[in-house]
Design a protein around this nucleic acid. Sequence first.
DNA 1: TCGGACGTTGACCCTGGGGCAGGGTCAAGC
DNA 2: GCTTGACCCTGCCCCAGGGTCAACGTCCGA
Lengths: 243, 243
Amino acid sequence: MFGMLTIGQLADYAGVTVKAIRHYHERGLLAEPERDTSGYRRYGAQDAVDLVKIRTLASAGVPLSRVKDLLDADPDALTAAIAEIDRTLQDRIARLRRTCDQLAQLRGGDRLFVSPEVADHLDHLRELGVSERQLRLERDGWIIMRTASPEDAFVWITERRELLTDPEFRALYLEHDLAYDWSPDDPRLPALADRTRKWFTGHHGRSETRPVHNPAIARLAARSQPGATSPAWNRLADLMKGD
Amino acid sequence: MFGMLTIGQLADYAGVTVKAIRHYHERGLLAEPERDTSGYRRYGAQDAVDLVKIRTLASAGVPLSRVKDLLDADPDALTAAIAEIDRTLQDRIARLRRTCDQLAQLRGGDRLFVSPEVADHLDHLRELGVSERQLRLERDGWIIMRTASPEDAFVWITERRELLTDPEFRALYLEHDLAYDWSPDDPRLPALADRTRKWFTGHHGRSETRPVHNPAIARLAARSQPGATSPAWNRLADLMKGD
DNA sequence: TCGGACGTTGACCCTGGGGCAGGGTCAAGC
DNA sequence: GCTTGACCCTGCCCCAGGGTCAACGTCCGA
């Protein structure tokens, strides 16, 4: 019979693989055509039209089960459905574009992993000369805090950034950072502990909102990390709670 | 231990389902963390960072097997890979937008299923008052032709559109269309056959390129369609080849 | 201390095809 | 007649998870 297509020709016409056509047959989306004497499927022009419809909907991300319904829906329902599909498609495009942006940030620093406020905070600390080790501790601490309570984390990071404008706090922070590598017998440790305690008592009244949980030298949250503490820091902790 | 996340908390943090995290464990993408006494997985901040990386790459459509390699690739290779991924992403966005356009045409006529030239041709025929039945025959014929040979189909459709500028050809075409429903004994049939033959002989020399295959009244290709012929048309065919 | 709501565990089936295996068919050339 | 290459057939496994299940764990209020 003249004008009957094989599955491969049909596939080429619609820009679809042979496999996909067979799949549509299995799902009952495209009617199984007649077979020739050797069992090959033989298609006509209407099949080509149907297939292009199916492919258009499917490549818009419509699940095949729904495509099936849509194919013999009345024109009004089809129009409505198309409008809705178009909306979800726009949404997907927008999301892909956002993914694009995030992808670009992947080679950068930590901005992708923490909130913008925390990222700014970490940048600030880096400018002050804080060690990479301490920066990681900070970053990880804020990550953990955010999982516990994003709102609280936001309040805390705001407080913390404000605190860093205090020169004495900044000095203490940097010195604590340095102290990590000191010997536990270092004579500077008691003096540092003392200064820290004094600063604490002086500022206790100010940030009353969450006096317990707001860790001035915030490493509590990251305690489980490897290298999150050192002999000198342990000594420091003992000295500070000792009195 | 303080600061250890459950799988659900980690999932919320990264904007990912619990299921996906377990999947990444199975694929060896994300290291299996320690379990607590009851067998629950317990995660740290580093896991959150790793997970966001994975998710960023995966939602850009990178296959997980490649994500795995990328995770511990050197920065240069990563940069190159990201550039490439970005390109494929742009491509996907462009393709989605095209899909959007095609979707809109789905409620329209046949423009989606045939080449633009054929679509214009069909529009022209419709304006001339050709029956819907005949239009379908035409459309299906061109579809079948295109599967046989897109280039030839392009040549043929160009010739055909030129031919339609001939008033006598137009008149014959329209009358053949009407003749479909006539009785096979209709006295107008012999006259029509005669006129058609005359026209043919008059124009035989002109379009020499494909004298055999260029069907003046092109319904050969669609002969397999239901309703592609009628008693009157059969009679007409007999009359024309009879002499 | 109990009950109920919610989390977590692994296991299994579903999607929309791509890929592969093992076999049949066809047309062309030797 | 035989081979060769291109095409077709069915059936099964794979991806990247989503849904659902039964069986536990955990936490919170009464």
